[in-house]
Nucleic acid binder design. Structure first.
Length: 951
RNA sequence: GCGGAGGUUCCCGAGUGGUCAAAGGGGAUAGCCUCAAGAGCUAUUGACUUAGUGUCUUCGCAGGUUCAAAUCCUGCCCUCCGCACCA
């Protein structure tokens, strides 16, 4: 192997840079604009980026070869808190943080520098740019930029964006529950927790039950307001003392220790005294929905410290059912609380929900099903309750006796009732954590309702509709992510878009806020089209009017204090390039970043600037393991490129997966790729140079085997093109490289070195062109060495000729391959190491006729008799044999070759292959027609399957 | 729990009713070449079969439809992604 991957990579990268090969400006060609979420610059690019960016570059390079004016733009993201936090940790010399830097090759002398967030930004954006260039990315670097107010032009752009959103009332102030750390005085996201990952606020509704003839109100928390239609009792913890809390002139009765929770919900309250449970038991409250009088009763499973400390019951739950039964039957208990036995007996469940496959008394039914006999059997009751709630929530429909909710599903009813109860003042929303959460600062977190926060109103219905419309018009790679997109758009709620600290752009109308990181990266893709010219303009002259005119065509250029000619130039660039055609990243971004991007585009831009295409891919594993710093298998892009060379990494990373599947970085595969590419380099250069013009003209006449090779080539170009169009790069490499190479090797052998010169030249060109998106450096080198002018990067993708694709030709070769397989099989079974002679017997012609006939008939019927009758008439002289064959074939139609030929053709094909077979098996070869031989084996010959005798 | 994507032979993966013991790649084993290593080439890689185009077992598990199932239907199990205030 003569190729040095590192050297040629360096050579061509330099060449591309000096020739400005990938700088793209508006012109008259059809454009193709690609980009990818700008990386957050808190570290070196790693193997995940290696994959994602490669998908973009391969697409860019492919589109360039199709004749598009291609722009691949790239920027850097610094908005948000992690960099600031990381710098702070370096200041504190926190071990974990220093280790992360050490992993990336930094040492103690760098710590001082990394104390400053700005150093992070400048270092890692510079390093990333270098890494990407070394990786062979065809990026137009003139358009690079960084976010935050470090870039005052971009800062202006983001302010403009938010002013636009505000005008449309898509930025709103509202209330929201968040997991809150009281010490950090900030929301605590999953990544910022030392315990409690995945926990979050769960909403309850606290329903008011006024005590009859009293000013007290019992507050019962529930997740099932639907059951209020069957409210029957109010449970208290009989051993507890409750507290009376004054909330806006109402006297709430709640469990002790609830005061904090109420305050966290931004409600002012004051404790006014306590009341023992016993004092409440036997009294009555007014039902919140039915208005019926309900008894306050003791229940063993109530814990005054949970929720509000009180629970209402509809007796449709196994717990309620058993507890009520217990009250009704336990005389001692009745006496203790002075309850009337007859009155208690009257309390019976009311059926309000129909569940398919269940009767009216769900509580009782579930107790029977779970074999529960006592109210004390808490374990089984828990199971039964979970099952009940699941069933009811999934399948329950409200019955006729449920007023306006009749006929609705339980989940719909729950949502509506929550809203109604809050609106009519009968209830209040409450949030509690689903589990314990501890902040990284080791403080216990709780739910907090934040109420001065700004939100992007992704919950807005009209906005959602527009977003759906955008998705419907968009090309998605792969198409199967569409369902997830549709779902996410419906599911998104309002998003808190401002922060109190971190880097970024200030909210224009309330400067104390920073615009949050995901919110400032939504329409930034348009900024690439204007960045280089825009950033040359004096920033103080850039204002909202400027962007209105530039990006939306509103207003007029004369009103802007900038040379009109320059404005129009920039405007033209935007209008030419926008929207983007391909935006690619990992599948995890569908649920947030991609969705936000769609929302913001439809909010700000007219339809013609809505995104054209979004692409998603899986993750990268390293030798089947997830990449993680702690496992020590953290791979950065630069190390891979250093070890294997850019081209090998590029094609290697795309070779193990595509679609939404995860890919695996496989060093062994990369190694093998390196060899294969090296072989190709040698083959291409050696062979192409030998092919003189005269030879090409002379070789215009083509034999069968040449036609076969030509067929394979054109079929492969066709299939590879299709795969490239869908960014199925693994398929493209499999077909366009592995398959073509395999067939070429076969062709070399079959022709015993006498390949058709013109065809070989065509193959060399097509193969090199098809590799260009993946291994551009190698391909430029080959292109130059075989004497082509100009960059292969700008050469047209190979085209295929449908007329040269002919499945029948393929059949002949398949036959040859099968023959070799059969001989190998025989050699193995007969334990013959080195054959001295192989004889082939080609079947008699009547067999071909018979096979053809059967092939036709079998399409219509599988009935043996019927086929037999229509067939045997023509084959009287071979009646017995024919009958046997018919039976065999009908039973297993795989015995029929795809294409039934004739004896002479197959005979001739074998004769043509004699030389090849001789060399392959290193023995003499005889080819005989069945009828000309007395050998008993000869009779075994079948169409497409000559009989074989090995000696 | 909810929504989405998946489960194929040693591994990665192709394959959606018959041409399927299942492409291609990786790995492994053996042979050729070589002073040797690497590369390359050839063969093998579910089991049985000392002359073949056979038999048996296999495509997450269990049933079903069909002359015929990796492929269609039903139920179940498992893995990955997301479920939010954040890159």
């Amino acid at each position: 192997m003569t190729v040095n991957f590192h050297e040629i990579a360096k050579k061509w990268q330099k060449e591309w840079a000096t020739q400005k090969t990938f700088e793209a400006n508006a012109d008259t060609r059809p454009k193709f604009f690609l980009t990818t979420p700008y990386p957050y610059v808190n570290g070196l690019l790693h193997i995940g980026h290696t994959y994602t960016y490669m998908r973009v570059d391969a697409t860019a390079r492919y589109r360039r070869m199709l004749g598009n004016n291609v722009l691949f733009a790239f920027g850097f993201h610094a908005t948000g808190t992690p960099i600031e936090t990381a710098a702070k940790r370096v200041r504190e010399r926190e071990e974990g943080q220093l280790n992360t830097l050490k992993l990336m090759g930094f040492t103690e002398k760098d710590w001082k520098n990394f104390e400053d967030p700005l150093y992070w930004i400048s270092t890692f954006s510079k390093e990333a740019k270098q890494d990407l260039s070394n990786y062979g990315m065809s990026i137009d670097w003139r358009r690079e930029f960084i976010t935050t107010d470090l870039n005052p032009h971009y800062d202006k752009f983001i302010r403009w964006q938010f002013n636009k959103l505000k005008e449309k009332e898509y930025v709103i102030k509202s209330k929201h529950p968040v997991v809150w750390c009281p010490s950090c005085n900030a929301p605590t996201g999953d990544h910022a927790r030392s315990e409690g990952e995945g926990e979050g606020p769960k909403d309850f509704i606290w329903v008011k039950f006024p005590v009859e003839n009293s000013d007290l109100i019992l507050m019962a928390g529930t997740t099932r307001p639907d059951a209020l239609y069957a409210e029957k009792t109010l449970w208290v913890d009989p051993t507890a003392e409750y507290q009376i809390v004054n909330v806006q002139e109402e006297k709430w009765v709640v469990g002790k220790g609830t005061l904090n929770k109420i305050e966290q919900h931004a409600i002012t309250c004051k404790e006014e005294g306590t009341i023992k449970a016993e004092e409440l038991i036997g009294k009555k409250v007014k039902g919140a929905v039915t208005g019926e009088s309900l008894y306050i009763l003791p229940a063993s499973f109530i814990d005054a410290n949970m929720g509000s400390g009180l629970v209402y019951s509809a007796l449709e739950d196994p717990f309620d059912y058993m507890e009520m039964k217990h009250i009704q039957e336990d005389k001692q208990l009745l006496r203790k609380y002075n309850l009337d036995a007859d009155e208690m007996k009257k309390i019976q469940p009311k059926s309000i929900i129909s569940v398919e496959g269940m009767g009216d008394d769900i509580g009782k039914e579930m107790c029977t099903k779970f074999n529960i006999t006592s109210y004390e059997d808490k374990t089984k009751l828990e199971e039964a309750k979970a099952e009940t709630n699941k069933l009811v929530f999934r399948k329950g429909i409200m019955k006729k006796n449920c007023g306006k909710h009749a006929g609705l599903t339980v989940s719909e009813t729950q949502e509506q009732l929550k809203k109604e109860l809050v609106e009519t003042g009968k209830g209040i929303m409450f949030y509690e954590l689903t589990g314990k959460v501890i902040c990284r600062c080791l403080t216990d977190c709780h739910v907090k309702i934040v109420d001065d926060q700004w939100f992007l109103a992704y919950g807005n219905k009209q906005w959602k509709e527009q977003a759906h419309k955008c998705i419907q018009q968009m090309k998605l790679y792969p198409e199967k992510v569409r369902g997830q997109f549709e779902y996410v758009i419906d599911w998104l709620k309002d998003w808190a878009c401002t922060r109190e600290f971190g880097l970024g752009t200030n909210l224009p109308w309330e400067e104390k806020w920073k615009i949050e990181s995901l919110s400032d990266s939504t329409i930034y893709t348009s900024y690439f089209t204007i960045a280089p010219q825009l950033e040359k303009l004096p920033v103080e002259k850039i204002n909202d009017n400027f962007f209105d005119y530039l990006l939306l065509g509103k207003g007029n250029a004369d009103a802007i204090d900038i040379d009109n000619k320059i404005i129009e130039e920039i405007k033209h660039e935007f209008e030419y390039w926008y929207p983007f055609d391909f935006y690619n990243s990992g599948k995890d971004l569908v649920q947030n970043h991609f969705a936000f991007l769609i929302f913001n585009h439809v909010a700000i831009f007219p339809e013609k600037y809505w995104p054209n295409g979004i692409s998603t891919n899986g993750y990268v594993n390293i030798n089947k393991q997830k990449m993680s710093k702690s496992k020590g298998n953290f791979k950065v892009l630069r190390d891979l490129v250093k070890e294997f060379g850019a081209d090998v990494v590029r094609i290697g990373i795309l070779s193990t997966g595509e679609d939404l599947n995860d890919v695996d970085w496989d060093s062994e595969l990369a190694e093998s790729m390196k060899n294969k590419l090296g072989q190709w380099y040698d083959f291409a250069i050696e062979n192409y140079q030998e092919i003189s013009k005269e030879l090409r003209v002379k070789s215009s006449e083509k034999k069968e085997i040449d036609k076969w090779m030509e067929h394979q080539l054109h079929k492969i170009i066709k299939e590879t093109t299709q795969a490239m169009n869908e960014t199925l790069f693994r398929t493209a490499i499999t077909k366009g490289f592995f398959d073509l190479q395999r067939h070429l090797k076969w062709y070399q052998k079959r022709t015993a070195g006498k390949m058709n010169a013109a065809l070989v030249a065509e193959i060399i060109e097509a193969q090199t062109l098809m590799l260009q998106p993946f291994t551009p450096h190698l391909c430029e080198e080959i292109w130059q060495k075989i004497g082509k002018q100009g960059f292969i990067s700008h050469t047209h993708w190979p085209t295929y000729d449908e007329n040269k694709i002919n499945p029948e030709i393929e059949q002949t070769e398949t036959l040859m391959i099968q023959i070799i397989d059969d001989i190998n099989h025989v050699l193995k079974l007969a334990k013959i190491d080195k054959p001295t002679n192989i004889t082939f017997f080609v079947a008699e012609n009547w067999k071909y006729d018979l096979f053809k006939k059967i092939q036709e008939l079998i399409k219509e019927t599988r009935d043996i008799k019927q086929i037999m009758q229509s067939v045997t008439a023509n084959h009287k002289e071979h009646a017995k044999e024919s009958a046997g064959l018919v039976q065999k074939i009908v039973k297993d139609p795989s015995k029929l070759p795809a294409h039934v030929s004739v004896q002479d053709t197959e005979h001739q094909n074998l004769i043509d292959a004699t030389k090849f077979l001789k060399e392959h098996f290193r023995c003499t070869i005889n080819i005989v027609k069945e009828q000309e031989s007395k050998e008993s084996k000869a009779k075994q010959a079948m169409p497409g399957k000559p009989a074989i005798l090995v000696e």
